Every structure is written in C-alpha cells, then in structure tokens.
Computed example of a mutant assay.
Amino acid sequence: MRWRTGTDPWPPPVRAVLFDRDGTLVHDVPYNGDPALVRPVDGARQVLDEIRASGTMVGMVTNQSGIGRGLLDANQVRAVNERVNELLGPFDTVQVCPHAPGDGCLCRKPGPGLVLRAAADLGLMPHECAVVGDIGADVDAALAAGARGVLVPTPETRTEEVDAAGTVAEDLWQAVDLALGAPREVTA
C-alpha cells in the first residue's frame, strides 16, 4: 500500500476569526440603532489587534432582526457597524442578516449563510474560519457552515447553550486561543 505524502494536516489552520457583534464584541443594546450607544467589551480592541498582527483575518457576522421586525432600518444598522469599525476595526468582512426569525432565510444564525458569505468574501473555505459568539446560535451557525465555533458565555447566555457548545471560553482571549488552536505567547 502506498501512502500519499505532502498533504496538509487536518484540521487546516484557521485563517479568519469571525465574531458576533452584540454581546461578543460590544455590549448588547437590543435593537440598537444609535452609534453613540456602542461600547466595546473589555479587551476587544486588544484581542482584535493581536489577531490582525498575526496575519489572521477578522470578520463580523451579525443578526439584525430589528430590520425585519421594522424596529430599525438598514442605515441605522450600517451607522452602528461603522461605529464598531471605528472603535474595533478594520474588519476584513462584515456580514449582516436583516431578516426576522420567521422569514425563513438561510443567513440568519443559527443557519450557515453569514459564515458561508464571510468565508467566500475572504476567499476562504468555511473550515478555514472560526466563529466566536455569546449564544448557541453563533456556535450552531459555525458548525452548520463547517467552521469552528467557540462560545464566550455572558450572563444572558442560557445554561443549555453552554452545555451544548463543544468549545467554551472564559473570555475573548481564551476564545481566540481555542479558535486558532494555539495559546498566544504572553510577554511580561
């Protein structure tokens, strides 16, 4: 029997980390249409800057059902995303699902659409991406797309979501370590 040599290891390295917006990168303000209310979670800018410095791409994937529910318009969501970009960017891709839960779209997390669109936009295969989020739908979207998923629970994360998540991190730093599969070097 002959073995094939020169193949890449599996799983391949993560080349992009895709973050949920509300509750993960910024404090969750339900149906936020006001850029002045955007407040990054502690350490988010440093985590994102470190990822970028390593050569790994960074994206944002966010459900914005307020549009589909008539509570927000696309311009308000765009303004909030621009504020997030000012505070935490730049992002290599930003993907938004504007649909309400009952619309039956494929892009709304836990569906795979946002992750698949982000990967395609970055020129990657989904398995080259990791998704970091604060609820089960974020992890489920990653898995549905064939990406890696990491849950960073907040007080609003349901216990059953934590129990069901394959990979759970205490904070964004640990989430990125787990997503990339290698602990970061800490300098004193």
Rank of each mutant, 00 (worst) to 15 (best):
N81Q: 14
E82N: 14
V84C: 02
V84H: 05
E86Q: 13
E86S: 01
G89I: 06
G89A: 00
P90Q: 07
P90I: 01
P90F: 09
P90N: 08
P90G: 03
F91E: 00
F91P: 00
F91I: 03
D92W: 09
T93G: 01
Q95F: 09
V96F: 13
V96T: 15
C97W: 12
C97R: 08
H99T: 04
A100G: 10
P101L: 09
G102K: 13
D103I: 06
G104S: 10
C105P: 10
L106W: 14
L106S: 14
L106T: 15
C107E: 03
C107R: 06
C107H: 12
R108V: 02
K109S: 01
P110K: 03
P110T: 01
P110E: 04
P112Q: 02
G113S: 13
L114V: 11
V115H: 05
L116W: 02
L116Q: 15
A118R: 01
A118L: 02
A118H: 12
A119V: 05
D121H: 14
L122P: 04
L122I: 05
L124S: 09
L124Q: 06
L124Y: 05
H127D: 15
E128G: 00
C129A: 12
A130V: 05
A130N: 00
A130S: 07
A130T: 00
V131P: 01
V132L: 10
V132P: 04
V132H: 01
G133P: 06
G136F: 08
A137T: 15
A137K: 14
D138W: 00
V139H: 02
V139R: 03
V139L: 08
V139D: 03
